[in-house]
């Protein structure tokens, strides 16, 4: 799987309360959640995010609450992929379970800048910065997780009897 897109950057410890504040958790409507994605961190986000943008962040992305509304809000904003130095563990599994692609790559997360165009090849664990020409190698997912991802998420994998 390959993704190409322009980068929107965030820092360390982006928590699920800022990804989608609890005052909007009285709904699980995807479009409604997308409207308020990142609102408390960057009120301009919902207005400027475009289909295919790639999110790049620092350490411990998605820390805090287990709310799946957080990866859903990101996915519903049109973002197919999040690259970070590290992910909080519940966000990590939620993203995999709902089919939002994620990559842990400290080197890329440090170097890539807001607005850069990047290409990520999940099968080979390669991230290319098309703006600067830099290339980064990451560990591909273990087969068990690749199975979930290739089925588009946990529910489909269960439905297909793949686990």
């Amino acid at each position: 799987m390959k993704y190409t897109g322009q980068v929107i950057r965030f820092g360390d410890n982006v928590d699920t309360d800022v990804i989608i504040p609890a005052r909007y958790l009285n709904t699980s409507d995807r479009a409604e959640l997308a409207k308020h994605c990142m609102e408390d961190l960057d009120p301009t986000f919902a207005g400027r995010v475009q289909q295919g943008n790639i999110l790049v962040a620092g350490q411990n992305f998605g820390c805090g609450s287990s709310r799946e509304h957080a990866p859903i809000a990101i996915q519903a904003s049109g973002i197919p992929l999040v690259i970070a130095k590290s992910f909080a563990r519940i966000f990590y599994r939620n993203a995999i379970n709902i089919g939002l692609a994620i990559i842990e790559c400290p080197a890329a997360a440090d170097a890539v800048r807001e607005g850069d165009s990047i290409e990520a090849d999940l099968d080979h664990g390669i991230i290319r910065n098309l703006t600067t020409g830099a290339e980064y190698q990451t560990e591909p997912f273990p087969p068990f997780i690749q199975t979930i991802i290739s089925h588009g998420g946990l529910m489909q994998a269960v439905r297909d009897g793949a686990l």
Binding site: S66, I90, R93, N94, G153, L154, M155, V158
Partner: peptide
């Protein structure tokens, strides 16, 4: 538990951890 503070029950010697709603759905079904 589909709540991050599910880790509370570790106090009682259980392995207990927070997950998301999809994990909860899968857990309820399987």
């Amino acid at each position: 538990g589909a709540d991050s503070h599910t880790c509370t029950y570790g106090a009682l010697g259980a392995f207990s951890t927070g997950v998301g709603s999809t994990d909860m759905a899968c857990g309820m079904a399987t």
